[in-house]
Structures are given as C-alpha cells and as structure tokens.
C-alpha cells in the first residue's frame, strides 16, 4: 500500500471542542458580548493561520505474538496496548497530521505579549489537529467499505501506556512525515508542535450476516 497524502484537509470548525478545551462550561460560563467578539476574532485569525495536512499508510500485519506485532522484517512493535488493539485486524493504519508552522509560530509570538490570543490559538490548533484524525479515519472508512473492511473506532498514539514514545521515530520514517514539513527531535517530539501521529486497526467485514 502506498502513502496517501492529504495536502489540504477541510473540516468544519470544531466550535464546541475549542470552547471546551478553553474551559467553557455550557450553562455556567458567562461571556459578555465584547469578550465573545474578541475570542471569536482570535479564533478566526487562528483558523486563517492553519495549514491542515495529513498522511496515512496501511500496512498488513504479518504476525502477532503476545505483545509483539510484526509488520515486516524491519518493522515490529512491542506493546501490549497495540497488540490488544489490533488482535482481530488484518492491517494497521498509521496516520500523521499537522496544523502547520504558521499557527505554532503565532502561538509562540503571542505567548509573551498577548496570552489570551496565544491560548485561543493553541486551543484552535489542538482541536483542529485532533479533528484531522477523525477526518482521515472517515476517509478510510469509506475507502475500506469497498474492500469489505472497516476501521476500529479506537486509535492510540505512542507514548501512551507501554506503546513506547521511541516508536515515534519508526512511525515518523514510515509515514515520511518530513514530506508534510514535520521534523522529529532527539526526544521524539514532533515539530511543529501541533503535529501528532496515531495508529488504528483495519478489520475485515463478514458479508451479510442475518440478525435473528
């Protein structure tokens, strides 16, 4: 399977999630019209700075023994969390997404001079990055239907539980993340900051099974 690049991900504004990330509680938090206008204008500015891109790759699972998942001679993962996640799967879907460099630069720029703006930009970038994963998953769900397959509803990222952060380098390389202008630090951080990777499983569907 080849890498699939999504050079311009177009998603609706995750309005509720952005406000929720900023601590907004529906029915409790009170914002004046002026405050709302300011926050909304920062949100709009942030959206104009986003460059949402993603990449994904399907790789078949060659074998799975206990906590080891083998994808090829060179690629294998030792993680109970991952192994359990993909136990009924034929393939793994790797995904990488980024909100781009401009928004992160703007977050840093305003950190010292206008922290409100910076915090709103940060929330916008974080929520859009998360939403990119949902978008890519929906894309694959549609593609996979034609192959009688679907995606698991759960996805994980390295750094969680026993899925070591060191696998970030493996994922970085197989997804060729540098092609969407993401780099990796020695401590396995993705740069620009609002970039992330995730994996999920691809499961085969049975044809038609009757409900009794």
């Amino acid at each position: 399977m080849s890498l699939k690049f999504f050079n311009s991900i177009n998603i609706p504004i995750p309005q509720n999630q952005i406000y929720k990330r900023l601590g907004y509680c529906k029915g409790i938090t009170k914002i004046s019209k002026k405050q709302k206008q300011i926050i909304e204008s920062y949100k709009s500015e942030a959206i104009l700075l986003l460059k949402l891109q993603g990449v994904a790759l399907r790789l078949p699972i060659i074998r799975r023994i206990d906590d080891i998942v083998v994808l090829s001679d060179k690629i294998s993962f030792k993680s109970r969390l991952l192994s359990n996640l993909v136990k009924n799967c034929s393939e793994i879907l790797f995904m990488g997404v980024t909100a781009g460099k401009k928004i992160v630069e703007a977050i840093y720029k305003y950190e010292k001079t206008d922290l409100v703006r910076s915090a709103v930009y940060d929330a916008v970038a974080s929520e859009y990055t998360d939403a990119c994963f949902d978008w890519i998953c929906n894309y694959y769900k549609q593609e996979l239907l034609r192959e009688n397959k679907t995606l698991l509803s759960k996805r994980i990222s390295c750094g969680f539980s026993d899925f070591s952060i060191q696998y970030q380098r493996v994922i970085f390389e197989i997804l060729q993340l540098e092609r969407i202008k993401i780099s990796l630090t020695d401590t396995y951080m993705l740069v620009p900051e609002k970039s992330a990777t995730a994996v999920t499983g691809i499961i085969k569907m049975q044809t038609v099974k009757r409900k009794n």
Binding site: L22, G23, I31, I38, V116
Partner: peptide, 12 residues
C-alpha cells in the same frame, strides 16, 4: 473556580 469564567477571561 465556579466555571463562570473560562480560560480566556481569566488570562485577559
């Protein structure tokens, strides 16, 4: 603390 204000208001 009562969540009547959220983060942008607190920071502002």
């Amino acid at each position: 603390e009562k969540k009547e204000y959220f983060l942008p208001q607190l920071i502002a």
